[in-house]
């Protein structure tokens, strides 16, 4: 198809000439998704481990909720965050709608259940291995959580990347709460959506190709990091 060669050439041209608007959009995408992923991991990793280690009332319900929320459609998250942040909503006074913070909030809500559910699985299988040792060594539950999370770090890195992948490729939520405002809240996915709406399929496809390349690079770096001496040793 002609569109593909056209899109490929366009993507190459835009990147090579260092198109300022494009770079701005790419940078913002990376910023928003990285921050959401980091926050999602700070909440999700310990949450996943706590569910494994502690027996508390409502634990099974929490697992069920997390697994359910894992499949949350981005549009629904966007809508809920919109209703919360809207001036007519409960958090309207903070004036966060159509800001980057709103986008970070939406993406964090989207990612955290995924990170928590996946890290629960990882930590659980590791804990099966360690449980007797920890009991034997009288390791407290709190230290056990740190030890498990640290020992599961390669798997957790992969989980973090899965979260990042979800965040950076998501369009429904950031479109609603960010508003796709040029130079302020326009990220790669919302730009792709609006370029498609303008019928500029080649430009949309070119942006898509750049998005894939970024995800490819990020995953590649993570792979190298995992293979590096520091990570395999420590």
């Amino acid at each position: 198809m002609q569109s593909f060669t056209e899109a490929f050439n366009l993507a190459a041209t835009l990147l090579l000439e260092g198109n300022k608007e494009l770079l701005e959009i790419v940078f913002l995408s990376l910023k928003i998704s990285t921050l959401s992923t980091v926050i999602g991991c700070i909440i999700g990793f310990p949450l996943g481990a706590i569910i494994v280690i502690y027996r508390f009332p409502g634990r099974r319900f929490t697992i069920l909720m997390i697994n359910t929320l894992m499949g949350l459609p981005p549009v629904v998250v966007g809508l809920v965050v919109y209703l919360l942040l809207s001036n007519a909503g409960p958090m309207g006074t903070f004036k966060l709608l159509y800001t980057q913070i709103a986008m970070i909030i939406a993406q964090t809500i989207l990612i955290t259940p995924i990170v928590a559910a996946l890290s629960r699985q990882v930590v659980e299988s590791l804990y099966e291995e360690y449980e007797e040792l920890f009991t034997s060594l009288l390791i407290t539950k709190a230290s056990a959580i740190f030890a498990l999370l640290w020992d599961a770090r390669y798997s957790l890195l992969t989980i973090g990347l899965a979260g990042f992948g979800r965040a950076i490729s998501e369009v429904g939520a950031v479109m609603i709460v960010g508003g796709n405002i040029a130079h302020v809240t326009r990220v790669m996915t919302t730009a792709i959506a609006s370029e498609t709406a303008k019928g500029d399929l080649a430009l949309a496809l070119a942006l898509g190709m750049i998005l894939i390349s970024i995800t490819f690079l990020v995953n590649g770096c993570a792979m190298l990091l995992r293979g590096s001496k520091y990570f395999s040793n420590k």
Partner: peptide
């Protein structure tokens, strides 16, 4: 600029957004 359909734009404006 937040670009949405007319119906949605009016709704958003009603919410004070």
């Amino acid at each position: 600029v937040v670009a949405v359909g007319t119906g949605q734009a009016i709704k958003n404006a009603k919410n004070g957004d």
